[in-house]
């Protein structure tokens, strides 16, 4: 058994998998990654399944390894024993290696470790911070925490780097569709003005600062919500529901961030600016399918290729991918 020892957990590091399904009716948040694109790419690179548990890092991070492990970091900068690695790398580590993750773009990085041992609680390995269970003891990682790793069996495993452009998630454009209470909005054009992420933002929700929205009515009969829902409380400043959001809410929901752009928010830190762009539901649906199939294309190439250098061109405005194996 290998182990990873956390030296510095940064602002907030938690274990997250694809999310906790089937318990929303009991008030359980779904949790899971704030940036599902980086999360899935990190897992695929490390030879994991797309929704396997990994470490979601906010800001910088440092850990030391005992034993052998195969890990990847997306999208932050990985520094192994003081040497900066190429971005989007998966690489072998051995006893005594120190890995630093430097958040030089965005806000959250995903450290995927092949064979990371996390106990399942209520059908998921995600940390449910609001209720304090799941993941690593139901809490954020602290300095000195140790997580077991099953050493990879495949001796053929090679270091590899994905040449990957996911610049869109570092931009400030966030596409939204009209929400159930859109018609209560008296100044709809205001929603497309610039908003700043407030310091009072976390995995539960992002509070926005900027122009106030004027609604005919702010309160509704509480109803179920989904991540990306934009609620407007009586002060007129929107709140975006994020991964650990409460499952029901009683403020008007004027719009919904599309799934494809939730990672844009996940990579934003307090004081970053965003701008909403309204799109049709039909476009939101198409983008959902398109982004999912991009990730599948990356997965397919990484799983099936024995080439040293190969390229996945999945086109479109989103990102192109080239994969080369090194070392």
């Amino acid at each position: 058994m290998a182990r990873i020892i956390v030296n510095n957990p940064g602002f907030l590091s938690t274990i997250q998998d694809g999310g906790r399904f089937g318990f929303a009716r009991y008030g359980l948040p779904r949790s899971g990654p704030m940036d599902w694109i980086s999360f899935e790419i990190a897992n695929i690179l490390a030879g994991n399944k797309r929704n396997d548990p990994l470490i979601e890092i906010t800001g910088n991070f440092e850990a030391t390894f005992e034993g052998r492990a195969f890990v990847s970091v997306v999208p932050g900068r990985a520094i192994l024993n003081g040497k900066s690695l190429e971005r989007f790398s998966a690489f072998r580590v051995k006893s005594g290696d120190t890995l630093k993750i430097f958040c030089d773009r965005g806000f959250r990085s995903y450290l995927a470790v092949n064979g990371l041992q996390i106990e399942e609680v209520l059908s998921s390995k995600s940390t449910c911070l609001p209720a304090g269970f799941g993941g690593f003891g139901g809490r954020k990682l602290l300095s000195g925490d140790i997580i077991d790793i099953i050493e990879y069996g495949n001796s053929e495993i090679k270091d590899r780097t994905l040449v990957c452009d996911i610049d869109r998630i570092f931009g400030n454009a966030v596409r939204i569709v009209k929400g159930p209470q859109w018609n209560l909005l008296k100044n709809p054009q205001t929603l497309e003005s610039e908003y700043t992420i407030s310091p009072d933002s976390n995995r539960i929700g992002y509070n926005l600062e900027g122009e106030r929205l004027d609604l005919e009515s702010y309160e509704i009969v509480s109803e179920g919500m989904i991540a990306g829902a934009i609620q407007v409380p009586p002060d007129g400043l929107p709140i975006i529901m994020m991964a650990d959001h409460p499952v029901t809410g009683g403020y008007s929901k004027v719009a919904n961030v599309i799934y494809a752009d939730l990672p844009v928010l996940g990579q934003k830190k307090p004081s970053d600016r965003i701008r909403f762009e309204i799109v049709d539901l039909d476009i939101a649906r198409k983008l959902y399918m398109k982004y999912k199939s991009w990730i599948r294309a990356i997965e397919f190439e990484l799983c099936n290729s024995s080439k040293d250098v190969y390229r996945v061109n999945v086109g479109g405005k989103g990102f192109t991918v080239e994969v080369k194996e090194i070392g």
Binding site: A24, S222, G224, V247, T248
Partner: peptide, 16 residues
């Protein structure tokens, strides 16, 4: 999956 509430039921789905 769905969440029943006071006067509504919210249904969540994976479009794929």
């Amino acid at each position: 999956e769905w969440i029943p509430s006071y006067a509504s039921v919210t249904i969540f789905y994976d479009p794929e």
